[in-house]
Simulated scan of single mutants.
Amino acid sequence: MQFEKLRTNRFNQWIIIHLRYLVGFAFLPSGLIKVMGERFTQVSTDNPIGYFFEALYQSGFYWNFLGLAQVAAGILLMTQRYALPGALMFFAILSNIWVITISLSFTGTWIITSLMMIAVIILLVWDHHKLHPLFAYNQHSAVKAFPDPERLWIIAGSIYSFSFIAILWLSSIKEDYTQWLSLVFGLVLAGTFIITNYKAYKNSGSLLKTQV
């Protein structure tokens, strides 16, 4: 099958692994802002967009809950191992955001959210075989086994998640030392990216482990 050929191609696997990192990170900044109880935008309430976000902000715990859901979806995607639940959460949340940006005529933002929708749909298609049992009512449905991301990428995802969150949290603290700590975490991110991809290259491009 064409899907099997695409799914087992090592370069495609590398792209999906890093697409999960990228899409997961996209939710962290806006999610953490909401978790910390801060406003997402400074647009005046005279503008429909500013009025909408101010109403959400004034909702209190619901604002925090939205942020927590975004952060959870981003982290799940970046773990690789739990990427499918993360993609499903991401799709549910992003669908609402996408419709909002179109209905309120966000200048240019709808283009970004549309690209994010395309990306998360690609991730869902990539793992769609894992969803088959959900739709096989009263029938036996076997899930075809494809190689999963090796431990290298799972560890990298944890490092990325922690470092991203640390940098974003430090940016909210107005102290001199936070700039140095942010720089350290930035170097950790860059180092993780270089080391993981170098190891993958050294291992003859073997991005995924063989399942037993």
Score class of each variant (00 low, 15 high):
M1V: 04
Q2W: 09
E4M: 07
K5V: 06
T8C: 06
N9S: 05
R10A: 10
N12S: 08
N12W: 03
Q13W: 10
Q13D: 02
I16N: 13
I16K: 02
I16C: 07
I16G: 08
Y21L: 09
L22C: 05
G24R: 08
L28H: 05
P29G: 09
T41S: 13
T41H: 00
Q42D: 11
V43I: 15
D46S: 13
G50I: 02
G50E: 00
A55D: 11
Q58T: 05
Q58F: 00
Q58Y: 06
Q58N: 15
S59D: 04
G60V: 01
G60H: 02
N64P: 02
N64Y: 10
N64W: 10
L66E: 08
L66Y: 14
G67D: 03
L68T: 14
V71I: 14
L76W: 10
L77F: 05
T79H: 01
R81Y: 03
R81E: 02
L84K: 09
L84I: 05
P85Y: 01
P85N: 05
G86R: 15
M89D: 03
M89L: 15
A92I: 11
L94K: 05
L94W: 05
L94V: 04
N96R: 03
W98A: 10
W98E: 12
T101C: 13
I102F: 14
I102Y: 13
S103F: 13
L104K: 14
S105K: 15
F106N: 09
T107E: 09
G108A: 15
T109I: 11
W110R: 14
I112E: 07
T113Y: 09
T113E: 07
S114E: 03
S114W: 03
M116A: 15
M116S: 06
M116I: 10
V120F: 01
V120H: 07
I121S: 13
I121R: 10
L124S: 14
V125N: 15
W126Y: 10
H128N: 12
L131A: 13
L131Q: 10
L131M: 08
H132N: 06
L134S: 10
F135I: 11
F135D: 07
Y137G: 03
Q139I: 05
S141W: 11
V143K: 08
V143Y: 06
D148F: 01
D148M: 08
P149R: 08
P149L: 04
P149V: 07
R151A: 15
L152R: 13
I155P: 06
I155S: 08
I155R: 12
A156Y: 02
A156V: 01
G157V: 00
I159L: 01
Y160C: 04
Y160A: 05
F162E: 00
S163E: 00
F164D: 01
I165R: 00
I165W: 04
A166F: 02
L168G: 00
L168H: 03
L170H: 06
I173C: 11
I173N: 09
K174F: 14
E175V: 13
E175W: 14
E175C: 11
D176N: 09
Y177I: 07
T178H: 04
T178Q: 00
Q179D: 15
L181D: 00
S182D: 07
V184C: 08
F185G: 02
G186I: 02
V188G: 06
A190N: 15
A190F: 08
F193R: 02
I194W: 06
T196H: 09
N197E: 12
N197T: 11
N203I: 00
N203Q: 13
S204H: 14
L207C: 12
L208A: 08
L208N: 12
T210M: 15
Q211N: 13
Q211T: 15
Q211V: 11
